[in-house]
Amino acid sequence: MSDVNRLNKRFAEIIASDHRHGGQPGIEERAAALADEALNLQNAGSATQRVRSSLYASGAAFRSSAMWAAIDGRRYDVAKAHMREAQALAEMSGDQAIKFRIWSHAGTMYRHMGRPADACAANDVARNLHLTRRDPLFASLGLARQGAIHGTAQNRTDTRRAFEQAQDAMLRADPADHRPVWLLAFYDQAELDSLALSAYLALGDYPTAEYHAHRCLSSLRPHMLRSRAITTTRLAHALLAQGAAEAATATAMKVPIDAATRHARVSRMLQEFGAALRATAPRSTTVQVWTEHTTTWRTAA
């Protein structure tokens, strides 16, 4: 178990790096290498069934982090390969929490790919695991991600219902319960509001999206740098869609250069913001300000 404990410490480091930097290839590569290291320990000698199950769970956890880094970096073909390996390791481990993480990530991947039916099916696998009946916090995350999927699918009523149920489940969760580090590191009220922001932005309900953006930003933990950049960018989109071009541009300009130039999801959303801004106010000084700002980004990168 000393090897397992050492790997768990490395896993916590991967999680922390992900929240700071997002889907960088370096994080994906480190996570994949640590997954291989966990599997190599299986062949290093005799071990109890408990140790073997823990090593498979560690391998699945690292592989699921590699999968998430690839999703976050929009490298979907690579993410699918990591997903298949993670799913196999999770089955051998028998660990319900890591199974939830992998299938929930799969749902998010398909949502980002614009495949809501597949996203819903994958997320349902996570939500139907018995630990969601045992722990309301897992149930809440499954429901919140389901709400984001419903938003992508333009199901307004189902979106609202899912987030109401997710909020209720979160309020019922006992903070004293033991939970895995990956869940405690990111899922809280801010993340629930972030998922709601994504859903209502997709639905075109911009005032509600803006409301959830402000709630998210007000409660985000300091280490969630990637989440703050994504939420700030989405808030800029919500403001622009309501006709507040100057406020939207000022908001978008708050995104750090590192995230704007190196994080695939943020970069794409900011490119889309610039295109929408130019279409909304093509000859305004606001467009000129944004153009000069993005030129500075490119120079700094």
Rank of each mutant, 00 (worst) to 15 (best):
A236V: 09
L225T: 14
L201W: 12
L195P: 02
A69K: 06
S219R: 10
G45R: 05
A117I: 15
M253C: 06
T251D: 04
A248P: 04
E191W: 05
D72H: 02
T159D: 15
G274E: 10
S46R: 01
A190R: 02
S219Q: 12
A202M: 11
Q42N: 10
Q167S: 14
I257D: 13
D124S: 11
F138S: 07
R101I: 11
C216V: 06
D168I: 03
A81D: 15
A32V: 08
T285F: 06
N40D: 12
F138E: 09
G59A: 08
T108E: 07
L201S: 14
S194Y: 01
A57I: 00
E246Y: 03
R160V: 12
A12N: 13
S284Q: 01
Q167M: 10
D77E: 15
T157S: 05
H130N: 14
A70I: 07
P116S: 11
L203I: 07
Q271W: 05
L225G: 06
A70S: 15
H178R: 10
D124G: 06
R228F: 05
A60H: 06
Y76I: 01
Q288F: 01
A61M: 08
N155L: 10
F11C: 03
T159N: 13
S93F: 03
T233D: 01
A47F: 00
A275G: 01
A245H: 09
A244F: 13
D258F: 13
A90C: 03
I102Y: 08
H223K: 09
R134E: 15
A44V: 01
H223F: 02
T249E: 03
G59T: 12
L201F: 05
S93N: 08
A148Y: 11
R10K: 09
L89C: 04
A88Q: 13
A90H: 02
T251I: 03
A60R: 04
A264C: 01
A162L: 02
F186M: 13
W68I: 11
N5R: 13
V289D: 07
S194A: 11
G107N: 07
A69N: 09
A148G: 06
R30A: 11
S46H: 06
R145P: 05
A301D: 05
R283T: 15
A185W: 09
M109D: 07
A66I: 05
W182E: 13
R221W: 05
Q165K: 14
D193Q: 00
A185S: 14
T249Y: 01
M109E: 11
T286R: 00
M67Q: 15
A166D: 06
G45F: 09
A35R: 09
D193A: 04
A117K: 13
D124C: 01
Y206Q: 11
F186E: 15
S93K: 07
